[in-house]
Design a protein around this nucleic acid. Structure first.
Ligand SMILES: [Mn+2]
Ligand SMILES: [Mn+2]
Ligand SMILES: [Mn+2]
Ligand SMILES: [Mn+2]
Lengths: 242, 242
DNA sequence: ATATATTTTTAGATTAGTCTAAAATTTTGT
DNA sequence: ACAAAATTTTAGACTAATCTAAAAATATAT
């Protein structure tokens, strides 16, 4: 809620663009439920998983789930985990859209590295203004992917479907393009930077070491390097269609 | 507090760049105390004034003042009103800096009108990242004034001093430049837009009507128009030094 | 199948920020 | 100078989001 008096105005949390009030906290729960559901291919998300990802205790999550179910944002059968309703999913996708658009802004316009942006986007994703989101999207020239390769839901709340594979699942000598990462930690992203593994680069698995299961790669048809098995499992790629 | 786990992270309010925790709400109080103190030329701000500008009740303000005084952000003698301490002023100036930088962004980069930006900046001013503020400032080419003509405090927390006069205090036939507005309501700003009164335009008071005390102006040495006494009192100008 | 372990929910508290109503203090007007 | 009015503070209560501890439900393991 916003009210102007003379010079000033005071922004009182539990904002609204127009209609229903969804708190900062509720938005975070819905977003995390969406992302975890997606990661589990549509399976219910458990209370403990949510506690872990919200950095709270299971008891707090139970309370919040009761509340979100009351508002019809989630399907909730006690002890059975949750999924989002259509209404809940739309809120989640709106938050994810803003998060990813702001990440594009931070990298493309402000020159941040892809390892520095997530925590800032975590705040910006809650800014509540349809018009701002629309103008930001245009300013960025309607990007379809964020700096980590994640697809950006459109203004209607539709998430583009992507079909990436883990590099670890690609046959030897198959040329692929690096499309995304499934871990966003600064440490992992900086590790990739050091080896010049960036979004859009060409990769080919030449060998998998018998010694430590590490991956011997050819990068951009030029550079040979080894990455650990864990790195290979967290690189998302697509078979080159060239 | 921010913690990343795999894909996600969860932003828990009561944020920090590094050190002390200042809530969203506390930031708003400190900002409003700063602006009201400035408006009263350094005089104490009263509980009722704060209640009005925070859209809360005097009782709530009293509580918050006790808390802010405890944290040494304000000088508070019961019943006597408050002023900011150096620490409180630095927080207020940081918030105001971000508010005004974001307003520049919204107008210069996203093409918003000056009447549409305040409420969005009211949210953006709480985003907590020194690095973001620094890069935003550079991206905007280190603007010294926001779209309403208000000066932008520098990164060290120093507010540039400006010496504007109300148009209503300017002698007849004195050429002045329009430098700012002392009311930021969309209605007022749109009213100015309609008469093409913009920041930087030339103004000269040709007459003050005996009938209704309205001001007969010459705009940009070309256009003659009348504005109400209230408009004249809320236009901030500076004598042309050309 | 049943005891044990794990997960989830409930019960009861706590904190921040707000409220209304009542008490205390300051200001104003004669 | 003092009564009345206005302002400010205090007291007590409420809501959202969290917590710990205990109870209930579900899963697992012999
Ligand atoms: Mn992110
Ligand atoms: Mn991302
Ligand atoms: Mn503003
Ligand atoms: Mn402004």
């Amino acid at each position: 809620m916003l009210l102007a008096i003379g010079y000033f105005s005071y922004y009182r949390l539990s904002t609204v663009d127009n209609q229903l009030i969804t708190s900062f906290t509720e938005e975070n729960y819905l977003k995390i439920i969406y992302l975890l559901t997606e990661r589990h291919n549509g399976n219910e998300v458990s209370t403990n998983q949510l506690a872990e990802h919200t950095q709270t205790k299971a008891a707090s999550v139970s309370d919040m789930l009761r509340k979100l179910a009351e508002k019809n944002y989630i399907n909730y059968r006690k002890y059975q985990g949750v999924t989002l309703t259509e209404a809940g999913e739309q809120i989640a996708l709106g938050v994810i859209r803003k998060h990813r658009l702001w990440e594009v802004f931070l990298v493309e316009k402000l020159g941040f590295g892809w390892d520095e942006i997530h925590d800032i986007a975590e705040q910006l994703e809650h800014i509540d203004s349809k018009e701002l989101t629309k103008r930001l999207d245009d300013f960025l020239e309607n990007p379809k992917f964020d700096p980590h390769g994640d697809p950006i839901p459109d203004a209607k709340g539709k998430m583009p479907s992507v079909s990436y594979q883990k590099l670890s699942e690609i046959p030897l000598n198959q040329s692929v393009v690096m499309m995304g990462v499934s871990v966003h930690s600064p440490a992992f992203l900086q590790h990739l930077d050091k080896q010049q593994i960036t979004l859009g680069c060409d990769l080919k698995v030449l060998e998998i070491s018998d010694f430590d299961k590490s991956y011997g790669l050819l990068l951009n048809n030029k550079i040979r390097l080894f990455v650990s098995n864990e790195v290979a499992r967290n690189l998302l790629v697509q078979v080159s269609n060239a």
